[in-house]
Amino acid sequence: MMYIVRTAQKTTAKSKRKPSSDPGECTADFLVLEPAGYPMASMLDEYPEITDPGVFEHYAREQWRGFTARKGDYLFDRRMFPDFAYKVTDVEPPESVIGQNTHIIVSEVLVTTTPVVEFRSDVTFDDVVGQQSARKKCKLIERFLEAPEKFGKWAPRNVLFFGPSGTGKTMLAKALANKTHVPIIPVKATELIGEFVGEGSRQIHQLYDRAQEMAPCIVFIDELDAIALDRRHQELRGDVAEIVNSLLTEMDGIVERPGVCTIGATNRTDAIDPAVRSRFEEEIEFTLPDEKERLAILRSNVRTFPIPVKDLDLPALAKMTEGLSGRDLVAKVLKTALHNVIIDEREHVTQDDLCSSLKKLKNIPVSGNADRMYI
Rank of each mutant, 00 (worst) to 15 (best):
G323K: 02
F220R: 04
N178I: 00
K10I: 11
V219N: 10
D45A: 05
M214E: 10
M43L: 11
D122F: 13
R257D: 05
V197F: 01
V97E: 14
T262Q: 08
Y374T: 09
E62Y: 11
G238C: 00
V240W: 00
G130V: 01
P148H: 07
G166R: 12
H58F: 04
V244H: 15
T350S: 04
E235S: 14
N301H: 15
N158E: 02
D52T: 11
K310T: 03
I141V: 15
G166P: 09
L224V: 08
E283F: 05
M320W: 00
P94A: 14
V117E: 15
D126T: 11
F56H: 10
R279P: 10
F84G: 01
V117L: 12
E213D: 14
E283W: 05
G54S: 12
D22C: 08
L207K: 00
D73K: 01
I342R: 11
T350C: 08
M320S: 06
A370S: 03
V349M: 10
I243M: 08
C217I: 08
D83F: 03
V260D: 00
Q9F: 10
R135Y: 01
P23V: 11
D83A: 07
Y208G: 02
R157W: 01
I263F: 12
V55W: 04
I243V: 15
L312W: 11
E49H: 02
P274V: 03
R303F: 01
K136A: 15
L317W: 07
L334P: 01
L224K: 10
P94N: 14
V341F: 06
I104Y: 03
N158V: 00
A337D: 11
G194T: 03
Y3C: 02
V123R: 12
E285G: 05
S165E: 11
I263C: 03
G166F: 07
A316L: 07
G253K: 12
A211E: 02
S356C: 02
S121G: 12
G152L: 10
M40D: 12
T68F: 02
F162T: 08
R279A: 06
D83V: 03
L229N: 07
K10M: 12
L248M: 10
D90L: 04
V106H: 11
P258Q: 06
L224H: 08
V123N: 05
E345K: 13
D270H: 06
L224T: 05
S107D: 15
V55C: 06
R268I: 06
S300N: 06
Q9K: 08
F76D: 14
I297V: 08
S96N: 04
R237V: 05
E235G: 09
A36T: 15
M2G: 01
L207Y: 02
P48D: 07
P306A: 05
Y74C: 00
A189F: 07
R79N: 15
D225Q: 13
N340S: 04
D230K: 12
A296L: 09
E195T: 09
F144L: 11
A189P: 05
R135Q: 15
R277S: 05
A337Q: 08
E118H: 03
T51Q: 12
R78M: 06
I343T: 08
L140V: 15
P35N: 13
S165W: 02
L354E: 08
G72H: 10
E62I: 09
Q100D: 14
G130C: 01
E149Q: 09
A265C: 13
D290F: 06
E282C: 10
P216L: 14
A13Q: 10
G37D: 04
Q203W: 00
R17A: 07
N267H: 09
